[in-house]
């Protein structure tokens, strides 16, 4: 598999504090990778600086062999749920329709085929029955599925998701992970910020373990070795129960 994403010596500081130091790793096409690490490890910062939402002090990121600015429209980004104003006057289908905006260009308005495509994406996440609801009327998991549908509508090659499993019901969680795996089998590359270690081995094939610097990157089973985890978290059992540790 070819490398679609490479991060080289990325350094990011935030209000004078060093948030990330010397991050370097590559990701192959068709990876489904998780970024994990303790609170304040810089997981969201990493994903945001990779796509240029936060400026970096040093280092560079190449995606599909180009700098990010050139291939923005081939990336779909799903923000954290609490970054969104859920009282905004917008219906579910219209929120998904925003996913078609990047490819429409200036002054063009979405047409009927764009609405149909948005509806199709909504159906794929099982939320088509809710297309005329105001977005704030949905549960956390349903909201997350709608935002995944919006990312699907972007027809991207790379997907960046920030904490998609926080405050999500089991059915939504299963839908989301199933769709991510489908995307992976279509050859898309997916990078997910994930808050804890539980289920990391179920969700992902690869892990990027982070605590302000890169602790490890590789296959889930290798990264979840207790030595590396203790290096990142300070305590090997921090976020796992006994049964999960035994399974490793």
């Amino acid at each position: 598999m070819s490398t679609v994403l490479s991060v080289n010596d990325l350094n990011v500081s935030y209000l004078g504090n060093q948030a990330l130091t010397g991050i370097s790793f590559d990701l192959d096409q068709g990876s489904l990778a998780g970024i994990i690490g303790p609170n304040g490890a810089g997981k969201s910062t990493l994903i945001k600086s990779m796509i240029g939402l936060i400026p970096s002090d040093q280092g560079n990121v190449r995606i599909l062999g180009e700098s990010v600015n050139k291939i923005r429209r081939r990336i779909a980004y799903v923000p954290q749920r609490n970054d969104i104003d859920w009282d905004f006057p917008i219906h579910v289908l219209d929120a998904v329709l925003i996913g078609t905006y990047p490819s429409l260009g200036l002054f063009k308005k979405p047409r009927k085929k764009d609405r149909e495509w948005a509806y199709e994406c909504l159906r794929r996440v099982g939320m088509h029955d809710f297309s005329n609801r105001q977005i704030g009327e949905l549960s956390g998991g349903q909201q997350q599925r709608v935002f995944l549908a919006r990312a699907l509508a972007q027809k991207a090659e790379l997907f960046f998701l920030d904490e998609p499993f926080v405050g999500v019901d089991i059915q939504s969680e299963e839908t989301i992970i199933q769709i991510l795996k489908e995307l992976q089998s279509e050859g898309k590359t997916i990078l997910v910020v994930h808050h804890d270690l539980s289920k990391a081995n179920v969700y992902f094939d690869e892990l990027v373990l982070l605590n302000k610097e890169l602790i490890a990157k590789g296959k889930v089973s290798d990264v979840l070795s207790s030595k590396l985890i203790s290096k990142a978290y300070g305590n090997p059992l921090a976020f796992m129960n006994e049964r999960e540790v035994n399974q490793l």
Partner: peptide, 21 residues
């Protein structure tokens, strides 16, 4: 009228707006 799309997305989800450039 002409910038409706841009006004909508930057009001609703400015992060996504800057993510797509």
């Amino acid at each position: 009228y002409f910038f409706y799309k841009e006004l909508l997305v930057t009001s609703f989800d400015p992060t996504m707006a800057s993510a797509y450039g």
